[in-house]
Amino acid sequence: MPILRLKAKKNGRLRFLSHLESLKMLERSMRRAGVPLKFSNGFNPHPNISFASPLPVGSLSDYEIIDVDVINEFDFKEIISNQTEYFPMEFTLMDGYFIENEKSLMSQVTAADYLVKINADIESEDIKEAIETFLDKESVIIKKKTKRGRYIDVDIREQVQDLIFDDEVEMIFMRIDTGSVSNLKPLALLDQIIIVPHEKVDVLRTKLYKGEEGNLVELF
């Protein structure tokens, strides 16, 4: 069965949706658009829709990658051009293509790019200095709660691939480990750089990558 892979933007108020709410929103939008969804078997049949990497509540994204199991290939370009009829206004489909069975999107992701804007009253110079201080450290250990409820030590310095203050846009650019093997959340990193209340921060995801032979390759 074919899989429809989509790239989309999630803006505005949709940043407040949880991962599950985003999935529900997508399912309903696709039903409205008449997408030939493939349903699971069993008592309560449900469609199979998945995001490459769940976005934390509060974050925006220019780069959401979604896989949808469908019964057959169809003209999804029509859906993209008429999407305002089917999707909430702050969700924008950018592009898509069909693929055949491959391993799950989520297991492929290894890294992500984010732009982080601080809306609190903090000088750019202070942010830059804080970034330098962080980068100068050899390791930054934080306690992380596992799924089983235990706490383990994680060195997040190792999970940071790139970190720089972009003067032009006055935002922090982060490239950090993302995915099932090693995962760092942008705000968890920010907490170790500088203290800002999270509601004063805009986080925008701009890219997702998979690792191929040691190189980062854009997911879409």
Partner: peptide, 10 residues
């Protein structure tokens, strides 16, 4: 639960 308050629903 922020999604209670945001509006803009379909």
């Amino acid at each position: 639960k922020p999604s209670r308050y945001i509006g803009g629903e379909y």
